[in-house]
């Protein structure tokens, strides 16, 4: 794993050396800004008992950002290198398949987390303006960011997998968007239709990302949520490694 830090830095560098990285950051900031306005409006209309983080993550903005931005961050990780030919140059150096997969995932995940850091700034500004320290408990904020990190790891691993499947960045982005939105929709109000068999609703409830995020944004660390994200991330990374390795089966 000697080349791992070098590869991670390269992945981050690739985001910052191109316009895409800045477009992603700008997009997140724009949507975060909208959600802030929305949040202030809500707080004004009703007395706030819930922490601000909870209100924030219950708005559609958060999911809009995650669903739209993740495919853009990960689409180039494998597909871009394949279409540019640098994949061949990479895979003929003495680095292992797992090293490459983990580095690409780690680079994408770090960038994802970086794009969310300005949100911490937004929360701080709110605290300054309202002067309500109770609304911004450090523990709640920390758990919320932990939740963002976990959601991010699932979406980044899924994006890496989609990117490893193809040579086209556009196809990679579309596949990871479809997977992402599919997974998210499955758990979005799973019991609302009343058409599902009895066992399905609790199962879907278990993978409901909106429910998970509700808990995280209240400052609750729920073990099975954490396990869900870690296993799902591992699953997609495992699949990615198999795709990368598959060139040696052909």
């Amino acid at each position: 794993m000697r080349a791992f830090p070098t590869l991670v830095l390269r992945e981050l560098g690739m985001q910052f050396n191109s316009l895409t990285g800045y477009v992603v950051i700008a997009g997140v900031l724009l949507l975060t800004g909208f959600s802030l306005v929305d949040l202030v409006e809500r707080i004004r209309q009703m007395p706030h008992e819930a922490p601000v983080t909870e209100l924030f993550y219950q708005t559609a903005y958060f999911w809009l950002v995650v669903l739209l931005v993740s495919p853009v961050i990960t689409m180039r990780s494998f597909a871009g290198e394949k279409s540019g030919g640098t994949y061949e140059a990479l895979m003929t150096t003495p680095v292992g398949d797992w090293e490459v997969v983990l580095a690409k995932f780690a680079g994408a995940w770090l960038f994802f987390v970086l794009t969310w850091l300005p949100v911490a700034g937004v929360l701080l500004v709110m605290r300054q303006v309202t002067g309500e320290a109770a609304l911004f408990e450090p523990r709640v904020v920390a758990v919320t960011f932990g939740g963002i990190g976990l959601v991010g790891s699932l979406f980044m691993s899924l994006g890496c997998f989609a990117s490893a499947l193809t040579r086209s960045e556009i196809v990679a982005a579309m596949v990871s968007f479809l997977f992402g939105i599919g997974l998210w929709m499955l758990g979005y109000r799973p019991d609302s239709s009343g058409l599902l068999p009895g066992w399905a609703a609790p199962a879907l409830e278990h993978i409901s990302m909106t429910r998970h995020m509700e808990d995280f944004s209240r400052g609750l660390v729920v073990g099975r949520h954490v396990v869900f994200y870690l296993t799902a991330t591992w699953l997609f990374l495992f699949l990615t490694q198999r795709v990368v390795e598959s060139r040696r089966w052909k």
Partner: peptide, 22 residues
Amino acid sequence: PENNPLHLDMRVREYLKFRSRL
């Protein structure tokens, strides 16, 4: 490789350092 693929966004020295680490 054929067509000499390079990371076009990197600087020459930076690229060679990166490759030497790999």
